[in-house]
Amino acid sequence: MGDRIEKVSVIISKGSLEGIYPGLIMANGARAEGIEANLFFTFFGLDAIHKERFEHIKVATVGNPGMHMATMIGGLPGMSAIATRMLSKKMEAFDIPSIPEFVEMIADTGCGMFACKASVDLFGFTKVDFIDQVSDIITVGEFYERAAGGEIIFT
């Protein structure tokens, strides 16, 4: 039992669809295993908990070699929206929840939700910009205090 992970703190720093899902899946999966989990949103990752933005998260079609798409094609107007719609449809078929549904469900699992103070200040946000499930806006020092004794996963 000694090598069991008891606690994880997952940092989500990117605001693209492919930047947000992995961290959410890691945190949700931890809770499903009975592992204590915290989610810490920083920089563009804040969009995942932003009331007006979390329903409009898009997949990056430029600067993303994984899309197997020429940069100029990916840069055409509306390309990101089309790719996002296609991917979302596919994810729905596999019963993967949308980001808003997923974030709310993860909060229900008892996972802590925190926003990074430096990024919140930088973007001029306040607590009312975020969904109610966000417990607090915390500094990096406070994050380390909360993460103490567990694993830290940066995404």
């Binding site: 809770r31 499903a32 295993e33 009975g34």
Partner: peptide, 11 residues
């Protein structure tokens, strides 16, 4: 999670 704190589906 209140009923099965150590992981509902698993437990």
């Amino acid at each position: 999670y209140q009923l099965f704190p150590r992981g509902p589906a698993k437990i």
